[in-house]
């Protein structure tokens, strides 16, 4: 296990300097929309919170953290906060394979296709799409979270944004629950899954859903993806720990202790595999962590988009 203070100091410094936890310049992280040209006008703004875009970088950084955890080298992490965030961020960006970045960008592109096919009126403005700061909150760095959340909320308010469509449970929770509570910023926040209105009777597939903790418990929206899949002709085979009693994938521990994260995800994979059906996730952190441990997992957006195309 790493010293939490070292991790918190590095992440806090990166968010202060670059507005994201890895220090990577935003134009390098947020490129998924460039070839797709999503609508620029509509009722609600698509707000990705950059979480799907971060997953390839999380994989690279946790791979390095796993190599040095509990070794004599781990104590040198404390000096990382003295390195300018954008320098370490550029290094991380160079070490991260393009194929991984394209894989996670494709999920966001599929979400745009799903919203368009569901006739949802939405638009995307990349300059307003920022990281929510939720990791700072989870790590207990409340001052840094509040400071960053104020920055994000003020930008959205200044642009006159009131309705947001989110794509992951962590950003959804931050905007829906934490922003009103801690920075008095109220937005009308809807996860994209709740807006899907697609029907297909061609499918005869069965899948096992891994409910993320923030959808299963904190936001209690586990029924929605099951209904959406059912409308697409896809049945869900539940494991015992699902819905509001879902089991964590271990992802939240991956920066502090990759070993602990690995122990927890392996237990969860065993349970998910027990049904014998393909595993589907709907959170970038869960998806990345389950895949990193060797599970064959697909994102919900890819499954639904395949249904549209098929």
């Amino acid at each position: 296990m790493y010293n939490p203070k070292d991790i918190i100091d590095v992440i806090g410094a990166n968010v202060r300097m670059t507005r994201n936890p890895f220090g990577i310049p935003k134009f390098l992280v947020n490129s998924w929309h460039q070839d797709l040209h999503p609508p620029q006008k509509g009722e609600a703004m698509l707000f990705t919170g950059l979480m799907y875009q971060f997953v390839p970088y999380i994989e690279t950084s946790t791979d390095y953290l796993a190599r040095f955890e509990d070794s004599d080298w781990s104590q040198y992490l404390r000096y990382a906060r003295y390195m300018p965030g954008y320098l370490s961020g550029l290094g991380l960006a160079l070490l991260t394979p393009g194929s991984q970045k394209r894989k996670y960008n494709a999920i966001l592109q599929n979400i745009v296709r799903i919203l368009a096919a569901s006739r949802v009126s939405f638009f995307y403005r990349p300059e307003l799409d920022d990281y929510s700061g939720v990791l700072l909150y989870d790590l207990g760095d409340q001052d840094a979270f509040v400071q960053h959340a104020r920055y994000v909320a003020a930008k959205l308010k200044k642009a006159g944004i009131r309705k947001l469509i989110t794509v992951d449970p962590h950003t959804t929770y931050a905007l829906k629950v934490l922003f009103p509570k801690y920075v008095e910023a109220e937005f009308d926040v809807t996860p994209y899954v709740e807006l899907i209105n697609l029907h297909s009777h061609n499918g005869t597939r069965r899948v096992t859903l891994h409910d993320p903790c923030f959808y299963g418990r904190y936001l209690a929206v586990s029924d929605t993806p099951r209904r959406v899949l059912s409308n697409m002709g896809i049945d869900c085979v539940n494991v015992r720990n699902s819905g509001s009693f879902t089991s964590c994938c271990g992802g939240p521990a991956e920066s502090i202790s990759p070993k602990l994260s690995d122990q927890i995800v392996r237990k969860r994979i065993d349970e998910l595999k027990s049904t014998g059906e393909p595993i589907v996730a709907m959170c970038p952190i869960c998806l990345g962590n389950l895949r990193k441990a060797g599970a064959n997992v697909e994102d919900l957006a890819n499954v639904i988009a395949a249904g549209i195309n098929g």
Binding site: P4, I7, G140, C213, C248, G250, G251, P252, A253, I264
Partner: peptide, 10 residues
């Protein structure tokens, strides 16, 4: 020990 917590909410 506090930072081992996954904040999973169980």
């Amino acid at each position: 020990d506090l930072w081992q917590c996954l904040h999973c909410g169980l």
